[in-house]
Amino acid sequence: MSEEKKGFFSRLVEGLTKTRNNIASVFDDIFSGFSSIDDDFYEELEEVLVMADIGIHTTEMIIEDLKVKVKENHLKEPSECREYLIRSIKEQ
C-alpha cells in the first residue's frame, strides 16, 4: 500500500478548501462578468451566497447592506463592490 489513507479531518479540510476555491472563482466571475450593478448582478450574488450555505436570512441582510453601500458611495462598477461585500459578510 504505497498511498496512505487520509483521515476524516484531512478529507474534510480538502473538501472545504475545494469548495472555498470554487466559490471564490464564482465571485470572481460575477465581479468581472457584469458591466453594471443592477438587479441581475444582485440576484447572481444572492444565488452564490445561498449556495455557499450562508443562509437565506443572512444573505438578504448582506445584499441589502451592499445595496446601501453602493448607493452611499455612488458605485457604478461591479468590481468596486468586492470590498464592500467582503466587509458585509464579515459583519454578519
Rank of each mutant, 00 (worst) to 15 (best):
M1L: 11
S2N: 12
E4Y: 11
E4Q: 14
F8P: 04
F8K: 09
S10N: 08
R11S: 02
V13E: 12
L16W: 10
T17V: 06
T17N: 14
T17A: 04
K18Q: 10
R20A: 13
N21S: 12
A24F: 04
S25P: 01
V26H: 06
V26C: 00
V26P: 00
F27N: 02
F27Y: 15
D28V: 02
D29L: 11
S32W: 08
G33R: 07
G33D: 09
F34C: 05
S35M: 13
S36T: 15
I37T: 11
I37H: 10
D38M: 12
D39Y: 07
D39E: 15
D40Y: 05
D40E: 12
E43F: 06
E43M: 10
E46R: 09
E47N: 12
V48E: 05
V48T: 10
V48Q: 08
V50W: 04
V50T: 08
M51I: 07
I54L: 10
G55N: 07
I56R: 09
T58H: 02
E64S: 08
E64T: 07
D65K: 06
L66C: 02
L66H: 01
K67G: 08
K67V: 07
K67D: 04
K69Q: 11
V70L: 03
V70I: 14
K71Y: 11
E72F: 10
L75P: 00
L75Q: 11
K76N: 13
E77R: 15
E80N: 11
E80P: 06
R82P: 00
E83V: 07
L85C: 01
I89G: 06
K90W: 06
E91R: 13
Q92H: 11
